[in-house]
Design a binder for these strands. Structure first.
Lengths: 140, 140
DNA sequence: CGCAGGATGTTTGTATACAAACAATCTGCC
DNA sequence: GGCAGATTGTTTGTATACAAACATCCTGCG
């Protein structure tokens, strides 16, 4: 008996599905929150809930590498939502701090953030949503 | 009774989880197939299984918009895996065709593609994998 | 036949991503 | 005290993504 090779069906590969679901999610995101991107939102959330962070720590907290976070923080600064200041105790560090505008924006948009997640998961019922989240969590 | 507002926990939002799982997946991909990217792989799969396609149709088949596909196809062409030729019947169209090298590469790499999916889903058992795929499919 | 509307591809501009190489700095350990 | 090795941030180069504006071409319909 020769091994029957499993056929490669692109639509059945996790990576492809992840990409398509992410595309749909990001479209929903920008409909609800057009002013900033999902990445920028994640950074604001972390800063709002954890207080000022070094750029590197912020990147780790929001799952972006150093080069990526630099760009995101730069754009947030340009938008006036965040400030970068030298750390007095450690000359390597740049401390990123939420401005009042940044804090106001994130506080006002938490509800929209939840709506975005709900809209993304809308095709699933409550139990299925919980299941999906649990499974995704384990693939981290 | 005032409405208790649901707290916004970044780690519990689908978008954030999707991004992290995708990051892990792409890292696994490039470990197994360093020569080309996941996007490029998806294009080669479509061309191999569906034959020559116009650049636009290829983009749709692989879930990329026109601007994105142009770049991906350009890089595949530079790698000698694909050819672009004017369509004689429709002057607007560019027909994208797999070269022999492209066909050989994709045929040789299907097995790795399956291994990549398996490695990504490795933390889950068989039933859980099927569940995840079914749920993701419905979020497309 | 002729034109309006759709399809196709390109270009530009912006925003992630990440590898790799660097400079500056800090920290622990001898 | 001082240096090896880790941390932090930057820069460069490559590869997605996608919106928007265009030029070109095709197709159907009156």
């Amino acid at each position: 008996m020769s091994e029957e090779t499993e056929p490669y069906v692109l639509d059945d590969q996790v990576g492809y599905l992840l990409r398509r679901v992410t595309q749909r999610h990001l479209a929903i995101f920008s409909q609800h929150i057009p002013e900033i991107t999902a990445m920028q939102f994640a950074c604001l959330v972390r800063l709002h809930q954890q207080g000022p962070l070094s750029q590197n720590h912020l990147g780790r907290a929001a799952s972006m590498d150093a080069a990526t976070v630099k760009g995101v923080v730069g754009r947030l600064e340009k938008l006036g939502l965040v400030t970068r200041a030298a750390d007095p105790g450690d000359k390597r560090r740049l401390t990123v701090t939420l401005t009042e505008a940044g804090a106001a924006l994130i506080a006002a948009r938490y509800a929209d953030g939840l709506r975005i997640s709900a809209a993304t998961l809308e095709p699933l019922n409550r139990a299925e949503r919980a299941q999906l989240m649990a499974l995704l969590n384990r693939l981290t």
